[in-house]
Design a protein around this nucleic acid. Structure first.
Lengths: 135, 135
DNA sequence: GTGTTTGCAAAGTGTTTGCAATTTA
DNA sequence: TAAATTGCAAACACTTTGCAAACAC
């Protein structure tokens, strides 16, 4: 769990004012970190916690936090976007039946080698997804 | 390039009649394999090749081909679905700026080990995406 | 006070669906 | 002829946007 003051600091550093809405969402995200959320889930949680934030603001905030380096967007589901409080490169298990997402412990999903990159490109991230189903 | 008769065979095996539309799309897909397409791109190509197919049918067909094991769906872009004519597990380079997709040569993107799976689950696929940008 | 942020509702994008007309076997 | 397939338009789910009101500094 990340110290709260650090969040405010990072928001400021990114030029984001620590508004009531952003702090509410940061609280939900980082006091329960590490975790994965969709916009909808976070929106519902905010209502439930009596810290209502409009869905549009949830979307905006998730993207702003991602830009600020507080979150990482995980592309795993063609239907909806997922965001992860753990920003370092790491793999995920994805339960297709439930839409649930789980981190793969660090070191358990690394490549044997970095592939030869196409001419003139640099790596932004290496994403590993192990899709699993219950049996 | 996959022999054409084999496609018809696989369609029949999957219970799919080899209609004009499916054959047109199969031609575009497999005569230029290996390749990656989105529904929109394939739709435009069909028009251009004077083999018009409605967009709804393109979507249906891509999914039917995927179910039949002729294509693999690649989740890489929150905006749109991509399909790949290469169905074996293999990694991809994704050019975020252009939305372009490129296979990583087989063997260059394997994991050092298969991570310990969550209790009671089996692997459906292991997807590796290296997101790159031009520098 | 000034510029930023929010919330709403409307618009947008990619995708799916209902159904009559058409095609395949 | 019976069952599958197509194409259209409408419906859908998720996300983004325009803009006036509210807020942060």
């Amino acid at each position: 769990m990340r110290p709260y003051s650090q969040i405010i600091e990072q928001l400021r550093a990114a030029g984001l004012r620590p508004t009531r809405q952003r702090l509410a969402l940061a609280k939900l995200l980082f006091e329960n970190a590490p975790r994965h959320v969709t916009a909808e889930v976070l929106h519902v949680e905010a209502q439930a916690a009596s810290m209502p934030v409009s869905l549009a603001t949830v979307y905006n905030t998730l993207h702003q936090f991602t830009e600020a380096g507080l979150l990482k967007e995980i592309v795993i589901d063609p239907q909806r976007s997922h965001f992860d409080t753990t920003i370092s490169d790491h793999g995920h298990f994805y339960f297709e039946e439930t839409g649930h997402l789980q981190d793969i412990p660090s070191g358990e999903a690394t490549l044997t080698q970095m592939p030869v990159l196409p001419e003139g490109t640099k790596v932004k991230s290496v994403d590993v997804v192990v899709r699993v189903f219950n049996n």
